[in-house]
């Protein structure tokens, strides 16, 4: 199911925690991304009322959610994760749901937030690959997951 389009190569030192392919992009996604710096994903099985503002995706790897210091890769762009709320992993693994916020903030305001640097999000396209990558070696400390 992995997209055959070009992806930035994963070095052997990175672990792929999550990998999916975008299957559809709702009409409101551009407004969320360009107006609010927010990109919402849901799994393809999510209720239809959530599809308008969501990028739907289908995962082939789903082992863990992100934590501070991981890298979000979307459509070939690599974006560092600044902070992660407490319910992000459960929502991602259970529902395929994740809220990316390009707010540059060092702490997650809401339990579902994944903070990224400002102006790092673009509107995805169907067929794009979404991945969460974890560098090998020393990892972020546990309190970063609070």
């Amino acid at each position: 199911m992995t997209s055959s389009t070009t992806e930035s190569p994963v070095t052997v030192e990175e672990e792929v925690l999550y990998s999916s392919t975008v299957t559809a992009v709702g009409e409101q996604v551009a407004t969320f991304v360009e107006g609010h710096g927010i990109l919402v994903f849901f799994g393809v099985d999510s209720p239809v009322e959530l599809h308008d503002f969501s990028a739907l995706h289908e995962a082939t790897v789903a082992t863990a959610g992100p934590r501070t210091g991981d890298v979000i890769e979307l459509g070939g762009a690599r974006i560092p994760v600044l902070a992660v709320g407490s319910v992000v992993e459960a929502n991602l693994l259970n529902l395929g749901h994740i809220d990316l916020k390009a707010n540059g903030a060092p702490e997650a305001d809401m339990p579902g937030d994944v903070n990224l640097p400002v102006d790092t999000l673009v509107v995805p396209s169907a067929g794009d690959t979404f991945r969460i990558l974890r560098p090998a070696g020393p990892v972020a400390s546990p309190e970063d997951r609070s």
């Binding site: 009322e49 959530l50 969501s54 709320g85 319910v87 916020k101 809401m110 579902g112 937030d113």
Partner: peptide
């Protein structure tokens, strides 16, 4: 939607909190 008495969500604060 017109059959729903209440929606219960486990939303982290961005999307579902507003949709319903």
């Amino acid at each position: 939607f017109d059959k729903i008495a209440v929606a219960v969500i486990d939303c982290g604060g961005t999307a579902r909190v507003g949709v319903y």
